[in-house]
């Protein structure tokens, strides 16, 4: 729960979002990428660049001995983030997961070019950036974490933020549940997805 509080403090106390959080500020990243997708917001893109570019470079250096190629990975990845931002769907995963996918795909295509001399750019077919789940009709929406809250939390007056720190509408947030069960947020998300998919299958069967 401490994380949630830290996030909130960042939003109210300083209008310059801090990049110094120990924990990833998923909410903030989500707002930036959404702003890039919907408003072509260069300021938000600059923030994303500041956050991701150094990390991408570090990872790319591990895969390419050549500094120029590592830089190419950064440039290509961030260019694709700008061009393909609209393919990001916050209901299907975190910004970090999506940008990781963009980066891995760029790296894969570049390595393939080096090894096989093929410029067929197959990565987006292997790991689509707008991945549709098998359970397409069961799109999982986290109504606590999604846009509604992205928008709402920022405008809540201080004394009402209490609501968010505790249970929101009588529910735990995914973060709280993750913290409580001591598992990564991603695990909670996938357990919820899986549980819902299973439930719908059961319901479907019982109505057949």
């Amino acid at each position: 729960m401490a994380d949630v509080q830290t996030e909130l403090r960042n939003k109210t106390v300083s209008d310059k979002p801090s990049l110094m959080n120990k924990e990833l500020d998923h909410l903030q990243l989500c707002q930036w990428l959404t702003a890039v997708a919907t408003d072509r917001d260069k300021q938000a893109f600059t923030r994303l660049f500041q956050f991701f570019a150094p990390k991408i470079l570090r990872i790319a250096k591990g895969k390419f001995p050549n500094e120029a190629q590592a830089n190419e990975v950064v440039q290509e990845t961030m260019t694709n983030v700008w061009r393909k931002a609209h393919l990001f769907d916050q209901n299907k995963g975190a910004v970090t997961t999506w940008i990781y996918t963009v980066m891995r795909n760029v790296t894969f295509d570049m390595l393939r070019k080096v090894k096989s001399n093929k410029e067929d750019n197959l990565s987006d077919d292997i790991w689509p950036l707008a991945e549709s789940l098998v359970t397409e009709d069961e799109v999982f929406v986290d109504h606590i974490e999604n846009k509604k809250i992205c928008d709402v939390i920022a405008v809540l007056p201080e004394n009402q933020q209490q609501v968010i720190k505790g249970f929101y509408f009588n529910e735990m947030s995914q973060e709280q549940l993750a913290a409580h069960l001591n598992v990564p947020l991603g695990t909670i998300k996938s357990r919820l997805r899986l549980a819902l998919a299973k439930l719908k299958k059961q319901l479907g069967e019982s109505y057949d």
């Binding site: 990833l24 956050f51 995963g93 970090t96 997961t97 940008i99 990781y100 996918t101 990564p184 695990t187």
Partner: peptide, 13 residues
């Protein structure tokens, strides 16, 4: 999905 989320989180922490 789960692994990708985890790897991504670790990559960008």
């Amino acid at each position: 999905l789960q692994l990708t989320e985890q790897v991504a989180e670790i990559s960008f922490e």
